[in-house]
Design a protein around this nucleic acid. Structure first.
Ligand code: MN
Ligand code: MN
Ligand code: ZN
Ligand code: ZN
Lengths: 152, 152
DNA sequence: TTGTTAATTCGCATTACTTGCAAATTAGAA
DNA sequence: TTCTAATTTGCAAGTAATGCGAATTAACAA
């Protein structure tokens, strides 16, 4: 995802308004490697801007995704994750604590189009499931040090 | 997934009842490569057994998955798919018509555990998105020859 | 500044999918 | 045939996300 300043340019150039809500979300997403859910972003945003609507968070995230500024990732459990890292990478998901880490494409075999089966492959998504280093310690396994679902 | 007959053995040996509903679902799932949703199975099952409950379909599918007889696959769009093919394979999803095809692991680079990053990788899921051979024909593209969502 | 207006936000209803629960039913054993 | 624990069923409820209309507001012009 581009920087908040660059995004501001883009938005202006498309007669999209630079609302405080959008600016806040730009800054919260910038360089954010936590792969947050909409809800998670909403929680954080609400602290800086009480009254911001969850609907607006969804709205803005959807717009940014449509603009190619961030990707939506569905790991099949819980809510969709949002990732401002548009580089070619995959993901590791800890099944115990829910932590998500980037897996650089260079550390994984490169999967490309042309299966030769008539498919036109346009996207490849690789998800590694397992236990993160923290949860893999047999003794002090901590299945709750990251929230997997909504608590409330 | 094992054959209906073998499953019958397993169920008996665990004091699980061999109900007509279960037997029907066993047969509908056996050798089924369509990666159906619970709803889709329910539709088909209802023809042979009017009155069968969608709840029972979900219930039985969940049991079989827990027993390791089939896998649940969530492609991030629409409902969960069920796959009796427990072999090591991945999936191709047509973004136009929703068709799902198996991708044999031998035709894709083998991804294995031991990322060296402290992760204990226990499962790898690769999803190829794109256009199937049918939808890839520029002229007669048919975005609806397979149901992607519930119609009704 | 003030006014104008199209874009945006907000809140609520609604949808899609799935699970919880309890009453009614039934497979399998005795 | 009788008994009972397992199962099925229908419905309520939950989660995640979206549709929609009324209220608000950023951006631009006067
Ligand atoms: Mn990422
Ligand atoms: Mn498959
Ligand atoms: Zn972990
Ligand atoms: Zn297709």
């Amino acid at each position: 995802m581009r920087s908040p300043t660059e995004l501001a340019q883009v938005f202006r150039s498309k007669q999209l308004k630079l609302t405080p809500q959008r600016q806040l979300l730009f800054s919260l997403l910038h360089e954010n490697a936590s792969h947050p859910t909409a809800e998670a972003l909403f929680e954080v945003a609400s602290k800086q801007m009480p009254g911001i609507s969850l609907r607006t968070v969804y709205q803005t995230l959807g717009e940014l995704a449509e603009m190619g500024e961030l990707q939506l990732i569905d790991f099949g459990v819980g809510a969709t994750r949002f990732d401002p890292n548009m580089g070619d990478h995959h993901h590791f998901v800890c099944d115990s604590c829910g932590a998500i880490r980037d897996v650089d494409i260079t550390s994984a075999p490169r999967l490309r189009s042309g299966s030769g089966d008539g498919f036109a492959v346009e996207d490849v998504n690789v998800v590694f499931n397992g236990l993160c280093s923290r949860c893999n310690q047999p003794n002090k396994r901590s299945p709750g040090h990251q929230a997997k679902h909504k608590k409330k």
